[in-house]
Amino acid sequence: MKQEKHKKSLLGRLQRTPHWKKEEFTEIEYEPTSVKELLTEMKDISELIIDLAYSALLFNSTEIAEEVKFLEVRMDKMNYDIRIMAMMAARTKEDAEQLSGILQIAQAAEKISNTAGDIILLMELKPKGLLPRILKDADEQLFRIVVSANSQACAKMIGSLKIESETGMRVIAIRRKNCWIYNPQSDNTIQSKDTLIVKGTNEGYNDLNEFLLGKQEVLD
């Protein structure tokens, strides 16, 4: 049962900012799962974690920075697991050649997550004024929106609202009271007073913002 739990991705779940246990850094234990699931999750995390790192800096959020650290440690562990699994799966030279490609991708994903760890270290330098100036000309930017009680989005699932396909805005994280949902999935709902961190174009942001503030009835 315990292993079943581990198999499920941590993303898209309501969670508190993790409290740090020393073991999480020191003890690496091999847990069997499937290479495909591991690699998929590593790829997903590597794409999310960079946006989270920039969000932490931009919105000066130590909580998001903690999540980045947490994911970074998790990536180390997944990279370890995938190496062991690959070694156990290799029977011939051809196997080994093919599996080494998988390990190289996993390594690259881990490298990206380490980079995210370096980005949040910049918080100490307080790049407050500088970072928004650099990012303002980007095609896609990070925004924060608080959902109004009278928005049609309340109590609806992200998938049914089609936020991304209607506005191009990707929801990176949701803050609900003291909890967070990182990389919400299509079956996660939006609630009144949620804070959404989203990524996309200025135009997409304007549409989504109107909708989440309750000024616009439908997204289109």
Binding site: V35, K36, L39, T40, K43, D44, S46, E47, E97, Q98, L99, S100, G101, I102, Q104, I105, Q107, A108, A109, K111, I112, T115, N183, Q185
Partner: peptide, 27 residues
């Protein structure tokens, strides 16, 4: 890191089927 990923494609080894499946199944 991106170059390391691309490097796998440029190598003369057939890709492991799991690789494509993982890319297809991601968010």
């Amino acid at each position: 890191a991106a170059r390391e990923i691309a490097d796998v494609q440029l190598r003369d080894v057939e890709l492991h089927p799991i690789l494509k499946m993982s890319i297809q199944e991601s968010d």
